[in-house]
Simulated scan of single mutants.
Amino acid sequence: MAERRRLLIDCRRLQCADEHRCFVLEEHESRYLRKVLRLKQGAEVDVIDGRGHLWMARLRDGQQLELCTEIEEPSQSVISPLPKLGLAIALIRRGMDDVMRMACELGVDRLQPLDCQRSVPQAEHRPERWSSILQEAVEQCERLWAPELPALCSAAAWWQTPSQHDLRLIAVTREVESPPLSALLASQASVERSIWLSIGPEGGWSDQELAAARAAGWISVSLGDTILRSSTAAVAGVSSLSNWRTFRC
């Protein structure tokens, strides 16, 4: 099957299409289609809104796209997968871009950056860049639902933020009594509540953060016998969550 290029367009812009189902491309979108993909007038491209819908469209003149159907009649619609998967990760010095991209490709629904006590001063916080990375990842991996990227949250405020009905997990090291993440997931029935996994910074969680998380009802889990970099731990944990949802739910 021939590859079809995708473009993620905010649903509010799609609603502003004219009576001919056309809407104006932003400069970076037009440049991407014309200069990077080298699409000519009349070329087909798939448009997604990041909310479960896909439309077939045609490039008009390099500056406009024309939807092939009415906005109320998308070519494809899918329900958001359940349970929702969330990754909360402390700001880290290197690897955050890769975490964002790979977590999106693996199907994470929410990505929450955390400011932790042991986050180093050089830790990256680039929400605009991450939003761009997520958009590109959504288009590349053919997701129809784009992940949410909330604003930076302090770890102190984070433990009380998700619903108490969610399954809330915090990755720890050197704690033999903490169950492996895979074993804990295997014991879970299919659930519709959200599942959160929190990953700490390079220096690990502080004692105060661990105590506050446990007091709020978070469950400690292990990601293996070795000490993983934060970025590696995030991807390993998300892989387990994604596989569990795919094959168990």
Results as ranks from 00 to 15, higher is better:
R12S: 15
A216R: 01
P147R: 08
Q41C: 14
A213Q: 05
E19P: 08
E27D: 14
L14F: 03
G224K: 01
S230P: 00
Q188G: 00
A171K: 02
F23M: 08
D49Q: 01
A123W: 05
R143P: 01
H28Q: 13
A88R: 10
W205K: 02
A90N: 10
D98G: 14
F247K: 09
L169H: 00
R34K: 14
R60H: 13
G217D: 07
A2V: 11
A156F: 07
G203N: 07
K35T: 15
S80H: 12
L167N: 00
A2R: 13
S132N: 14
I199S: 02
R21K: 10
G52P: 03
A90G: 14
G52H: 07
G203D: 10
E66H: 08
Q140N: 08
E128N: 12
H28P: 06
I9K: 02
L134N: 06
I79C: 07
V172P: 09
V238H: 00
R193W: 00
A103K: 09
Q188C: 14
R4V: 15
D49V: 05
I199R: 12
C104H: 00
L33F: 03
C249M: 03
S163G: 08
E72P: 00
A103R: 02
S77T: 13
A233V: 04
L7R: 04
R245L: 05
E66Q: 15
G107I: 08
P162F: 02
A211S: 12
H28N: 13
Q164Y: 02
C68G: 06
I219S: 12
E202T: 05
T173L: 13
S239E: 01
A151T: 11
H165E: 13
S131H: 14
E148V: 11
R174Y: 00
L169Q: 07
N243Y: 11
G107S: 08
E70G: 15
T246Y: 05
A212H: 08
R60Q: 14
P83S: 09
V47W: 01
L184N: 01
I199E: 11
D166Y: 01
L91G: 01
L114P: 01
R38V: 02
P201Q: 13
R248M: 05
V138M: 04
A236Q: 12
M96F: 13
A103W: 04
E44S: 13
S119K: 04
E209C: 02
E19C: 14
L111T: 10
E26A: 11
R51W: 04
H125D: 15
L241Y: 06
E26M: 06
R229A: 02
P113E: 07
L25Y: 02
L85V: 11
G204H: 09
A88S: 11
A216P: 03
H165W: 05
C249H: 12
K84S: 13
W130Y: 12
L39S: 06
V36G: 01
V172S: 01
G237W: 03
P180A: 10
R38N: 03
A155W: 02
S230D: 04
R174G: 06
R193I: 10
C104E: 09
A57N: 04
R229K: 10
L184C: 08
A155K: 00
Q41D: 14
I48T: 06
L37I: 03
E26D: 15
L65C: 06
I92H: 07
